[in-house]
Design a protein around this nucleic acid. Structure first.
Lengths: 141, 141
DNA sequence: CTGGATCCCAATAGATACTG
DNA sequence: CAGTATCTATTGGGATCCAG
């Protein structure tokens, strides 16, 4: 499967966003990168949602083709790759935070979630800075 | 088709949001309501993205079952229905605005888009208030 | 009329097995 | 480890039908 080329082909800003990063799996990959600092194929596969290998490969390719992530060889392991957020990808952090804020209002709270929410409300800029600096916001789920 | 019940079934705030409103069509319906003040089945069908009748019906049902929109008879036209955002749906407005901000950075700008973006930057609270008051932010696309 | 339901078929997404 | 290949399941488009 190659990345689809048209989708909505809409003239709308919202549709553009949805088409670019808004499918069910792409955004979870971005979450893994922004929240957990994940950057390897195997890390993404290990997420709780159990993404299939072909889907992951397709999404990584798609996100790369959209300029949201970039792929480079791992300097410490010649047969591994490192995926990282581009500027365009980092700019999605506010979308992620708003989704988290919304969900945390309507999903049952846990202590862990409450701490994350409190930090978003109290130190949003610090979180955005951490994401840009590739520092994980949360430790493993 | 009935609304799917499991999806990711994840423990994550982000996945919860994606599962609830993050599919390709649901969010466009929400956009129509928030940005254009649309509230009728026929209005949604008329959007530029050309949603199919079966998909629209399924999405409206899904959004209603998630408590994001509600459905009522149109008092002025006995054979029509009015869909409106609940509090839970209105709370999605910040997500919408962040998507628009992101897209407007990366999609080719038009005069219309520039005006919307400027207003978001300058008067975000006013926009949020307009959405809550069911005032359309934009006129027809 | 408006607001759907239904059916058919094409296209896409996804799970699993396998490979360089 | 980082994917491809293959097969199956689900979604979506479009036409049509139907109820109030």
């Amino acid at each position: 499967m190659q990345t689809q080329t048209k989708k909505h082909d809409s003239n709308c800003l919202v549709a553009y966003g949805i088409d670019t990063f808004g499918d069910r799996w792409s955004f979870l990959v971005l979450r893994d990168m922004m929240l957990y600092g994940k950057c390897r194929y195997g890390d993404f596969l290990a997420s709780e949602e159990q993404i299939a290998t072909n889907i992951l490969a397709a999404r990584l390719k798609h996100l790369e083709s959209e300029g949201i992530i970039s792929k480079a060889r791992d300097p410490e392991n010649r047969r591994s790759y490192i995926y990282s957020l581009t500027e365009k990808g980092l700019d999605l952090a506010p979308v992620l935070l708003e989704i988290i804020r919304w969900s945390s209002r309507y999903m049952k709270m846990t202590a862990r979630r409450r701490r994350l929410l409190e930090r978003i409300e109290a130190d949003r800029d610090g979180i955005l800075a951490d994401i840009r600096a590739r520092r994980a916001i949360l430790t493993a789920p």
